[in-house]
């Protein structure tokens, strides 16, 4: 059966797709949190620097960044990350970290002023206020959008085949190049596999939308 054969072939690439996905999610979330917090911190230098980073990465295109990193890092800066996986993860994370830092910033700024005032009245330090009052509430508010970005990151992992990583799409393209008539089956299976990976993320996003609507997680 062609379908089984194709699926088996594709399975060889799913590992790379998953590794890139998981590493990118972790790294981009960290970047988003740090960059988002820096942008609301009262320090002109820090705010300016992160603002610059965010605008550069949001203003250019991920696919361009991916090519740029894969050629410039080893060539221009003589940085060898060991494997192209890290180039891909770095490009995806810096790109989506920039986008997601905006939701971190937006969520922090949308915590009502009264929460800050109550924290001052209770004599909390600035750090305690961030850690116990503002950030926990901001995270809850940004989770639905965060879920949406996780789906974007999943979709973005398909780009890594363009810089030579052997992911899902890479094996699909190999198979297609030798079995031209089976191209519809190949790409349909690839799409279905991506959709299977997306389903938990879609579920997460919907659940978080409900949580955010209520404002508070009960129990």
């Amino acid at each position: 059966m062609a379908i089984t054969e194709i699926t088996l072939m594709l399975m060889r690439g799913i590992k790379v797709t998953l590794i890139v996905l998981v590493l990118s999610i972790i790294l981009s979330s960290l970047i988003a949190l740090i960059a988002g917090l820096s942008r609301v911190y009262h320090n002109k230098l820090l705010t300016g620097f992160t603002g610059f980073y965010v605008e550069i990465f949001r203003g250019t295109s991920l696919i361009v960044q991916l090519f740029w990193f894969s050629y410039a890092l080893p060539g221009l800066f003589n940085i060898h990350l060991g494997s192209d996986i890290w180039v891909a993860v770095l490009a995806i994370s810096l790109n989506y970290g920039a986008y997601m830092s905006e939701i971190v910033r937006g969520a922090i700024l949308s915590v009502p002023q009264g929460q800050t005032e109550a924290s001052i009245a209770l004599n909390l330090t600035r750090f305690q206020r961030m850690r116990h009052i503002i950030v926990p509430q901001a995270i809850r508010m940004m989770l639905p959008e965060y879920g949406n970005y996780l789906i974007q990151i999943l979709k973005a992992t398909s780009l890594v085949s363009l810089i030579g990583l052997t992911d899902l799409l890479y094996y699909g393209n190999i198979y297609r190049s030798t079995h031209l008539t089976e191209a519809p089956t190949v790409y349909m299976i690839i799409l279905l596999l991506y959709f299977l990976l997306a389903l938990p993320l879609i579920g997460f996003t919907r659940k978080m939308e409900k949580v955010a609507k209520k404002g508070v997680v009960h129990g």
Binding site: K155, L169, R176, V186, Y187
Partner: peptide, 19 residues
């Protein structure tokens, strides 16, 4: 919406003619 546009492009460009 939740699958990669790149794969969708390949589908339309490479797979569509083979249907």
């Amino acid at each position: 919406r939740s699958t990669p546009p790149l794969v969708q492009l390949f589908f339309i460009y490479y797979a569509w003619p083979a249907i």
